[in-house]
Design a protein around this nucleic acid. Structure first.
Lengths: 238, 238
DNA sequence: AAGTGGTCTAGACCACCAC
DNA sequence: TGGTGGTCTAGACCACTTG
């Protein structure tokens, strides 16, 4: 039984500052050099403690601006029909959606497969970023089967897509296949989310179909991992 | 547009060795000092690249024995009734279950709340570890409402619990509430899974009830994060 | 006993952000 | 422009695993 390594001691001491409210949710931590000095250690070791807390989802970093205490996790029910705006608001948080692009294009292999379409079929691609209490937390790309949604480009994309589907096209997405994979964010997603490469994240995909089995939507989401708790409630078997 | 940092270059080169099959799934990576020398860098930077790949779920470490290439992820459908043994086998993998302990005890606050019982009510607690192709990947603690399962201690716990529920007690668990939280493994779980502290993991909880709404089971699972992809398929709303 | 990963030091320079 | 985090170096010792 050896004693705990220094960086875990530092982790515990930092966590204590958070738990006691000395560092409230959303607040910025003191500078790394300052903390290292206060804890009488080097920056490297201090950063190891910070990385530990980041992995746990207790703190996060914003680009080169510093470390911040993570707010409470958002409860996300991917099976339900609630729009981002709706379930974020319901939990007393402030949502914001930013449209990065919308275009019609031809389906590549992976998209075609997911939408049960031949390669090259016409699809819409919508890219969005979403904020939670002004923190950028999610980037998503949605591919849609253009055949079922003629003239979709006329609508606004900073609000619920599913509402447009229902009200304009009389389409209801009943069947969903969802995958959730914990991973690290790399490349494109890092840039879009303005985080450091290797930041822990969740990759969520969703294929949505109508009751008739027509595949309408293929969605890829990348979330920062400390933002979410996924909740599922079920009374039946899929 | 600055050039990519060295550790990300190293990551890419290591990943190439994996993708080309030079380092096949399950194989051990060369020693850190060796890799650092080969890549003409220091161990610290090399380890940053390794940590990156670990976060992505491409490699994992086994205590002090070295780094290994992660096998393909297991598809886990927490909503379904399949037992661990069954769905692991169905995916061509080899499952193993190890019982760490079984005892009757009084429900603590958190357990009582989850099982809709008063604090101090009699419950069974079962601790198990589970292996995937001989790799320790999951530790779970299951609390059971003892009132519905008299004499449960007579049965074996290295196989499906739900099968015993059905065959012996005529209990079918229909309603489930599941939460999935990405986090890092700390303390107890680290020891049970024999990993390094801060190892990325998934915390999954499940509350299971009968059709009559009686809460039978509360389950807490800690998985290594590179092992899983969670899949959900639904035709109805929870 | 040898070799491995785990931890830690004491610096350094750079890119970027806020002032 | 000053301070921040991001990256990187060149070592060191320890704890543990494996032969």
């Amino acid at each position: 039984m050896s004693h705990s390594p220094l960086y875990l001691e530092l982790r515990t001491r930092l966590l204590a500052l958070i738990r006691t409210g000395e560092l409230p949710a959303g607040s910025r931590l003191p500078a790394e050099r300052l903390l290292a000095e206060r804890f009488e250690t080097t920056r490297v070791t201090l950063r190891q403690a910070l990385g530990q807390l980041e992995s746990e989802g207790c703190i996060y970093r914003s680009n080169r601006r510093g470390w911040f205490v993570s707010p409470a996790r958002l409860v996300y029910e991917p099976v339900r029909d609630y729009s981002f705006t709706r379930y974020v608001t319901a939990q007393g948080r402030v949502p914001r959606t930013e449209v990065l692009g919308f275009e019609e294009m031809q389906a590549e292999e992976r998209v075609a497969t997911s939408l049960s379409l031949p390669v090259g079929a016409p699809v819409y691609r919508l890219k969005r970023r979403r904020y939670l209490d002004n923190r950028l937390v999610l980037v998503e790309t949605i591919w849609l089967n253009a055949r079922f949604l003629p003239g979709l480009e006329k609508y606004r994309f900073d609000q619920s897509l599913w509402q447009v589907f229902g009200e304009v096209y009389d389409i209801e997405l009943v069947h969903k296949q969802i995958t959730i994979t914990p991973t690290a964010l790399i490349g494109e997603e890092v840039a879009a989310l303005e985080v450091t490469s290797g930041c822990p994240g969740l990759h969520i995909t969703r294929i949505s179909k109508t009751a008739a089995g027509e595949t309408i939507e293929y969605d890829e989401e990348y979330w920062l991992h400390d933002v979410l708790t996924i909740a599922l409630s079920t009374s039946s078997y899929g």
